[in-house]
Structure formats: C-alpha cells, structure tokens
Simulated scan of single mutants.
Amino acid sequence: MQSGFKDSLFKSVSNIPRKLDGDLFVIHKQTEAIWRGSSFPKYELMRACGHPDVKEVKKLYIGQAIWTNPQKKSKRALLVFGVAPDKCIISSDEFRSKKSLLTIKDSALFDDRSKYDFGPIKEMLKTGPIETEVNDYRIKVMGTFSLGTSFAASGNIVVSEDSFFKLFPYKSHNRVDVGMISIKNKDLTHQVKKDLQALLNQNVFVFTKKELIEHEEAYWRINSPIGFIFGFGTIMGLIVGMVIVYQILFTDITNHLNEYATLKAMGYPHSYLVKIVVCSSMILAIVGFIPGALASAALYKVTESVTYIPMDMTFGKILNVFSLIFLMCVASGILAMNKLKSIDPADMF
C-alpha cells in the first residue's frame, strides 16, 4: 500500500506535464513545480518564434483560485489554466473539439476528473451552462475535459487569457508561467532545445516533455515531505514485518526445541535445521503475500474511487514487493536461527 501511494503520488503530479500539448517547455529557473511556479517575460518566449524549426509557440498562465460549488456554495481551491482560445494546451481530441467554447466571454471548461466536492458539474451541464464564481468573479462553465487530480490540486479549469486576468488582476499580461513549443520535425527536438537554451535568457530552462516530468517529480521526491513520508513508510513496513516474522519463527523454534534436538541427536547437521527454518520463512512469505496482494488491489480501487488519483497494481510492483517481502522473511529466519545454535540434545533429555 505504501508503495502504491508513493507511485500514485509521482504519477498524479506528472499528469499535467504529461498531457500538455508541446514538444519543448520554457519555465523560470525558480519554478519548483508547475503549480508552484515563477513567471518570466513574455518576450523571451516570443524569441523562440524566430527559430526555423519551431512550428508553434503557446503561452500558458497558471494560478490557484477559490471555486464556489454551484449547489452547496462551499468553496474549494483549484488550479486555473489560462490560454488563448485558438490554442490547444491539452493533447486530446476532446479538448480540441471544445476549446472554441473559450471564445465566449467569461467562459470556462471544467475538469470532469476533479473531486466531487466541486459539485456534480458533468451532470448539471446536461441541462445547459452552469454559472458559478471563481475568486468571487462570475464565470460560466460551458463544458468539460479530462485531465485528472493530483496531490497539488483536487480540481482544474481552463479559461481564456482575458478571463484569466480578470480572475487574477494582480498578474501581469507581460509575463508567462509556462511556454509551450511545438517542433516541425520531432527528430530535431534535442537540437532545437540546445539552440533555444543558448538563445533565451539564462533565467529560464528549456525542457523536453520527459525532462519536465522529471523536474515535476523531483520536487515531490526531494523538496516535498510527502515523498519522504511514503518512502519512509515503505521502509518502516519492512522493519515491522521483519520483527513480526522473527517473533513467529522464534516462537515456533522455541515450541519445538525438543524436536530440533532430536533431529540433531539423530545425526542431522546444523545446516539441515537451518534449511527447515529458512523454508518456514519462505512459506510465510508466499502464503502471506497472496492475500496481502489481493487485499491491496481491492484497496487500490477504493482509494482511486474516493481520491480520483490513479493507483495501478502493475506486475512490476507485484514483483518488487514480493522480492522485498521474500528477503524480509529470509532475513528474519536467519536471525531466528541463532536459537538453534545453543541446542544440546544432552540438555533436552
């Protein structure tokens, strides 16, 4: 479960950069994560238009705002993405077909994978557009798209540039949070990246999509306490499991000292007794892992349905966890074998 939480953390936080429609991305060097970024001058991004291999340049504005549930009137924080209505920021056919709705004044597209606390938006849209407030400003939700929640944001909306600056009047029109660049020839992506990094100001990074995902994950792995907590939880789970298995094996050896002494008196070497204990620990690993894996798979589904954060039970994860549990049980068996060294058949009988 701890491994699943950790993997879902990294998968959810990289969900936004993974779905952004671009080959190269420009961010300020002080940007720790997309949702926690620093803006840079717009003219820096526009300089990239002069490169012969650049196909398109898109400006992306990002801010955190307060959403008002249209039914309950409760308020929740979400991420707001501002973009030119004629530009596609999400690489999906669904978003491309609906981006024209952003040309309507004070309109928005709502992420239908946001948590239910924001209201049953998708169901309410069946009867027509929904009016609500974001940062106490009246907007009209015209449709939905699919992006997904993360540990950073439990909801998302996309608005036009004009609407974005109405929601965030303190933000400057001359600064951009993320620059998205499309390349004519994908094979030249790395070369164009080098060219643009040399051309643009030293205060910005030019990342490929893979590098942007790694940058996003690095924030949560290194700078955020959440990544450390889940990693530490995995280690603590192994330690606690090792102690429990050790106690089981030690108690079993203690309860059967006479039998082990009898085997020793019959001429069985100490290595044979060691094999018995190690085999017992292996049986514990296998028999305990199967119901544990099934229970975890069920809990993954429950957690995903409640949090809307993807949790996948992959074969690689199953193999890794089983390997750790197997080694844990064998290590516990090796520790418990110390009791066998002191067995003397003469003392037993």
Rank of each mutant, 00 (worst) to 15 (best):
Y170C: 12
V302G: 06
G288C: 07
S160K: 03
M313T: 10
Y308E: 06
V178E: 13
G63T: 12
P169R: 12
I343E: 01
N255D: 11
K73E: 08
R221E: 06
I16Y: 08
N156H: 12
G333W: 04
F322H: 08
E44V: 06
E214I: 01
F315W: 08
S332D: 00
D86I: 05
K171G: 01
T262G: 07
I318Y: 15
V83W: 01
S281I: 02
K58Y: 13
F118Y: 01
H270F: 07
I290G: 14
G143Q: 10
H190W: 11
D93M: 11
E44G: 07
N258A: 13
L284Y: 08
T314V: 06
Q71Y: 02
D162T: 07
L9R: 01
F145H: 07
Y246I: 04
Y300S: 09
V245N: 12
P52W: 04
N320P: 00
D347H: 15
R113Y: 13
K210P: 01
I222L: 04
S92C: 01
Y268E: 05
S3C: 07
K87R: 06
E56C: 00
F315Q: 00
Y260K: 04
G22F: 01
R96T: 06
A298L: 15
F207R: 13
E94G: 02
Y260C: 03
L109W: 04
H256A: 05
H173F: 07
A295L: 09
R138G: 06
V206A: 10
D136E: 13
Q64Y: 11
G231D: 13
T144R: 11
N69H: 04
E304Q: 04
L299D: 10
V176Y: 06
F205I: 04
I244C: 15
F81S: 00
E259W: 10
S14F: 01
R138L: 14
P52V: 11
L102C: 03
F228K: 14
L102M: 04
L78V: 12
F25L: 05
V245A: 14
L199W: 06
E56R: 07
I139A: 02
I290N: 13
I290M: 15
D252W: 09
A298S: 10
K193S: 05
H215C: 05
L319R: 02
F289T: 14
S323T: 03
I239E: 14
R36C: 09
Q247M: 06
L212R: 07
L249R: 07
F95Y: 09
D111P: 09
N156I: 03
K42F: 00
V278Q: 09
P52E: 10
R96N: 07
V192D: 05
R36D: 13
G179H: 10
D111Q: 15
L20Q: 01
A261R: 06
S296G: 01
S280N: 13
S38C: 09
Y308N: 11
F230M: 10
G288R: 06
L9C: 03
I276V: 05
E44N: 10
D187Y: 14
V240M: 08
N174I: 09
S8H: 00
V245S: 12
F145G: 05
L196A: 14
F151I: 02
F205R: 12
T251W: 11
D177Y: 12
N223E: 07
I276T: 02
G267R: 13
C329F: 02
V278Y: 09
F95T: 00
A65W: 12
M282R: 08
Q191P: 02
P70E: 08
K193P: 10
S12G: 03
D112Y: 14
G82C: 00
I34A: 07
S154T: 05
L109E: 05
